[in-house]
């Protein structure tokens, strides 16, 4: 079995807008992005927020389970997601704002699906066009 990229790349970028209004995101470092390459363990398509559990190899033969927080189910459904968009075992690349305390948690910025599509954390949908 081919090993996935073993490390999470960390780099500093300009903060992007979190589109998640339910609670404070002060515990996530909105000035940093971390890229994770791994496989989906579980998707909790639940309120108040959707959670994606991702297993990320550490390059030493073991894996770390990351908890990635997205927006509310309604937000995701209005921005291209379906409840079964991500399935257990899917190979994904996930970019997150990592937890400030160094835990394996983060808020979702974007996820690249096995078919190459990229989805965000949920947010404002496109406006309704005339006749749309």
């Amino acid at each position: 079995m081919k090993l996935l990229s073993p490390i999470g790349l960390i780099f500093v970028v300009v903060a992007t807008q979190p589109a998640l209004a339910h609670h404070s995101f002060a515990n996530f470092d909105l000035g940093r992005e971390t890229m994770l390459v791994g496989t989906i363990k579980e998707v909790q398509f639940t309120n108040p927020h959707v959670w994606v559990q991702v297993m990320v190899p550490d390059g030493k033969g073991s894996q770390t389970e990351w908890s990635i927080e997205a927006g509310a189910p309604g937000m995701l459904l209005r921005t291209g997601w379906k409840p079964n968009t991500l399935k257990t075992g899917d190979a994904v690349t996930v970019v997150i704002h990592p937890a400030k305390n160094g835990d394996a948690n983060g808020s979702l910025i974007r996820v690249t699906l096995p078919d190459g599509r990229t989805l965000g954390p949920g947010g404002p949908p496109a406006a309704l066009k005339p006749g749309g």
Binding site: N27, Q44, T46, N47, P48, W51, E69, L128
Partner: peptide, 27 residues
Amino acid sequence: DIDMQEYACEDNRRPDAEGQQTTVTAP
């Protein structure tokens, strides 16, 4: 074109992974 979705706010709270605790509870 939009239907209102259910929003059960207390359903799946994850203060663990929101950074307020250090352990991850089982899903």
